[in-house]
């Protein structure tokens, strides 16, 4: 069997074999290959170095490289597992794996908790919740009085903080999500089931066959 394909394929820094990533995530090998096509597109949109930079992530999300957003920043930071300011291919696939429809619900709940634990204290604190509500209002051009924001935050906090210690821990969060399952709806991307149709990757497929 020929191997001209693999010899000629140049991969980006941080590239990992689809078989390795498929073994660690809910994705199949061909889905990982399709994600590589998507990754190449995203990681070359501004700086063609095979890494997703913050501006490229913002461009993909908002069609605007300069649009700052608290939540997009948090997602980027969580995807950037090595915390070196860029998203590598392996990080991209492992993180997106949480959003796969077949990923364990516990992983989705845990990811959302880390997302909302803005200051990495291991808790979601009242101030953090208020900061996120204010960020959402600003993003949506919604204006609510500070009193109303306080009421929304207080009400939610009182429901979630069952131990009443002024902060939401992982156990309380899990319980709160079980009562309000819609809270992790955005942790599932149905697109990921059809990723091979959206981003077919014939060349890389041939390479994997060669390896096998």
């Amino acid at each position: 069997m020929g191997c001209f394909c693999s010899k000629n394929t140049r991969h980006t820094p941080g590239y990992e074999e689809p078989t390795v990533l498929a073994a660690e995530t809910p994705f199949t090998v061909s889905e990982v290959e399709a994600l590589y096509e998507l990754f190449k597109k995203l990681s070359s949109s501004i700086i063609d170095d095979g890494l997703i930079h913050k501006e490229e992530f913002q461009l993909a999300l908002f069609k605007n490289r300069n649009k700052r957003n608290l939540f997009a920043d948090r997602i980027f930071d969580l995807f950037d597992i090595k915390r070196n300011g860029v998203i590598e291919f392996g990080e991209f696939v492992r993180s997106l794996g949480v959003f796969h429809p077949n990923a364990p619900e516990a992983d989705k709940i845990g990811f959302a908790f880390r997302l909302y634990d803005l200051r990495h204290t291991g808790y979601i604190e009242r101030e953090e919740l208020k900061e996120m509500v204010l960020a959402l209002l600003q993003e949506s051009d919604l204006i609510l009085s500070d009193d109303i924001v306080e009421v929304i935050v207080d009400k939610t906090f009182n429901e979630a903080d069952t131990k009443g210690d002024g902060r939401i821990d992982q156990e309380e969060w899990k319980e709160f999500v079980s009562k309000n399952p819609s809270l992790i709806k955005n942790m599932t991307l149905p697109y990921l089931k059809d990723i091979t149709l959206a981003f077919p990757s014939f060349v890389v497929s041939a390479e994997v066959e060669d390896l096998e």
């Binding site: 999300l61 997602i75 959003f99 909302y116 819609s182 809270l183 955005n186």
Partner: peptide, 26 residues
């Protein structure tokens, strides 16, 4: 009165920054 009865996390989860489906748009 609708926003007052709204769950704050529910509100946050509508953020465009959390909607990763945009990554898949061609």
């Amino acid at each position: 009165a609708a926003p007052v009865t709204m769950n704050a996390f529910e509100l946050i989860s509508t953020s465009q920054g959390l909607n990763l489906s945009s990554l898949f748009e061609k």
